[in-house]
Each structure stands twice: as structure tokens, then as C-alpha cells.
Simulated scan of single mutants.
Amino acid sequence: MSTRSCPCGLSGAYPECCGRFHSGAAAAPTAEALMRSRYCAFVKGDAGYLLRTWHPRTRPARLDPDTGTRWTGLEILATGAGSAFHSVGTVTFRASYRGGSLHERSRFERVDGAWVYVDGEFLD
């Protein structure tokens, strides 16, 4: 994946898109932005970011992303709440990889003002 395009599917370059969230230069402003940045972290194998953006009550002690998975695209299917004016939100998405796809409705909450991933429900 080139540094010119962000793996999350938006048109911006990685450093100005999800890269700024991964580096800690900014926090994801919406649940959807956090979802996109977490997908991008899976693409890049950034377990530290994934753990930092996971709700403390549901966060695993350790995370070892599968480096053999080749993620090929993210499609946001629906969002519920999750804006700057909400404390909870949902994002339904399909993440494609070589050989298949993952369809999930993820739940997000704000903790100390920052969006974090709570859990997800697999669909299909």
C-alpha cells in the first residue's frame, strides 16, 4: 500500500488521513473515523493503536494481528449516531481480504472524550 493513498478508502494520503490518528497527532472525531483508522491499523499491523483504541472493559490483554491476511478494501454500509455530539455510535461495514470478507456491526463509545471500539456483532 502506497503512502500516497490511505488504506481506509478515503481519498486522502495516509499521513494526513489515518496516519495522524496512528501517530497520536489527532484523535478520531467520529465513530466512523475511528472504524476507518482501526481497519487501516489492521492493514498496517499496528497492534499498539488497536489496543489503545479498544474500550478498557473489553480490550484483550494482547493482540497479534494476522500478518498473513491481505486486506483489500473497506466499505462502510451504515452508521448510527457516533458524531461529535454523541457518546455512543455504531458502524456497519464490510472489510474484504484475499479469499473473503468480514461483515460486522461495531459498537463505539467515548471514554474521556475519545472514541473507542467496544465490540462487534458478526453479520451474514
Rank of each mutant, 00 (worst) to 15 (best):
R38K: 02
S83A: 11
L102W: 15
F21P: 01
T72Q: 12
F42G: 07
T67S: 14
R38A: 02
S101N: 15
Y39R: 07
T79K: 05
V116G: 00
V111S: 01
G24F: 00
S11L: 11
A61R: 15
R94F: 12
A114L: 14
G68W: 09
P7K: 01
L123T: 13
T90A: 11
T69L: 12
T69K: 03
V116H: 01
T92F: 09
W71H: 09
S106R: 03
S23W: 02
R94I: 13
D64L: 08
T79Y: 05
A33S: 13
L51F: 01
C8R: 06
R107A: 05
D124F: 09
T53I: 03
C8Q: 11
F108Q: 04
E16V: 01
E109V: 08
F108P: 05
V116W: 01
A41M: 01
A114V: 13
G100Q: 13
Y97T: 04
R57Y: 08
S87W: 11
R36F: 11
S101K: 11
R70A: 14
G80E: 15
F93P: 02
T58I: 11
L123D: 08
R36H: 13
D64R: 15
T79Q: 05
K44C: 06
C18I: 00
R94H: 12
T92S: 14
R20H: 03
S37K: 02
A78P: 04
P29W: 02
A84G: 12
L123R: 14
